[in-house]
């Protein structure tokens, strides 16, 4: 919906540097939520903007650009999560989790969720996207996204007792 309705022609261009300065935090944080590791998020951030440099995409508007970046971040993270390297090293890397446990209020519980629920919770509660929009970004159906959000919230309700959603 928001991909296609706002403009009629793709004429919106943003330079790579500009896009990086504006959206690097957003991309990095989503990658962090997906992979739960600073190092992986750094690598993914680089991959995403390399794609941006090489594809020189044009957009309808800034919203479209944002959605494109999020979508590419999800794809890069997925490729990363399934790489044999990541599969082998995943079990060891709980240093980030340990750090979050001490410094964050709720984020460490979010990190404990299964990867799909984490993504949905991140996009909904942090980036503020609706269920339909998340479905578009994640290439899934609204019903599935609803289930992810619902299940994620159910777990969080138990782990974060008394939290207001």
């Amino acid at each position: 919906m928001f991909f296609f309705t706002t403009g009629t022609e793709k004429h919106y261009i943003m330079s790579s540097e500009q896009a990086f300065n504006k959206y690097s935090d957003m991309v990095w944080r989503l990658a962090l939520s997906k992979t739960a590791s600073r190092e992986n998020a750094d690598d993914i951030l680089q991959d995403v903007f390399m794609k941006y440099v090489h594809k020189k995409p044009k957009f309808y508007d800034e919203e479209h650009l944002k959605a494109w970046l999020l979508r590419v971040t999800i794809n890069c993270s997925n490729s990363f999560l399934r790489s044999p390297w990541e599969k082998k090293t995943q079990a060891l890397d709980d240093s980030f989790y340990i750090e979050m446990k001490e410094t964050s209020q709720v984020y460490y519980e979010v990190l404990k969720l299964p990867e799909k629920y984490r993504t949905a919770i991140h996009l909904h509660y942090y980036e503020g996207y609706s269920v339909d929009e998340i479905a578009k970004i994640c290439k899934s159906t609204p019903a599935t996204v609803k289930t992810w959000l619902f299940r994620g919230r159910e777990i969080l309700k138990q782990t974060l007792e008394g939290e207001d959603f």
Binding site: M100, S104, V106, Y126, L156, E163, D164, F165
Partner: peptide, 17 residues
């Protein structure tokens, strides 16, 4: 609110300079 706390937590995190 969960939303605010999550925002608070995540805003503190950003890639190294």
């Amino acid at each position: 609110m969960f939303k605010d706390k999550l925002k608070n937590d995540l805003d503190k995190l950003s890639p190294d300079e």
